[in-house]
Amino acid sequence: MIAALTLAQEVLTRSEFTDALPQNIAFAIIAGVMLFSAFKMVTTGNVVHAALYLMIVLAASAAIFILLGSDFVGATQILVYIGAIIVLFLFGIMLTKAQLGDDDSVSSERRGMGALVGVLLFVVIGFALVDTYENIEVEFSDPEPIAFTPTTADVDDLPTPVIEALGLEGRTGEVEITRADFDSLEPEVQRRVPGAEVFGNNKQIADAIFSDYIVPFEATSVLLLAALIGAVVVARKE
């Protein structure tokens, strides 16, 4: 007990932990909710409850994606999984009348074997991960890179913070905003300068999907069509 406390204190006071304390607290909460719901999902007897627990797990993983700076994947996760797949599962449950009460009286032998396989798998994966990646940090680049092209602008059209930061009070007419002017500004002000373009991950993702990964992208659309037709053919009545 005391050893665990001293370990916890040691971890809590390490600089790499306190540097990103809010993120780590968020991660702990999300991970706790996620694992609890996942565990309840595979153990609960009620099928509808299992679907709802799955929904919590999927929402938590969307939160993890956003925590990692991939807001587009997080939004896609919410739209596709929570919006569509959970509804599909609920339809599946309702249409099959899968003993809505307590189903799945699994034999304890089977359960024991499943738990054994799961724990062994985790030990192997966990050992490999801890051995390989020990304490490597995820370093976040500037979350929103700001692109800038030098422009001229009318002083009257500039937002007040920009005028103050560039020392343009009292001037009228056209002024030239150069690269050096732009670089001297704070990021908060930078994004309000005319000619500045804020883009996050999304632009890069779009570029990647529609250039390097255009073939997999088109293949995905064919796959979805095939799955749609396949599902209709399999499930329709003769």
Binding site: V42, D104, V106, R110, R111, G114, V117, I125
Partner: peptide, 14 residues
């Protein structure tokens, strides 16, 4: 691993 446990122990297809 929780997912693997679920696949191995659950009987209901859904």
């Amino acid at each position: 691993c929780i997912g693997v446990y679920g696949v191995l122990t659950r009987r209901n297809g859904v």
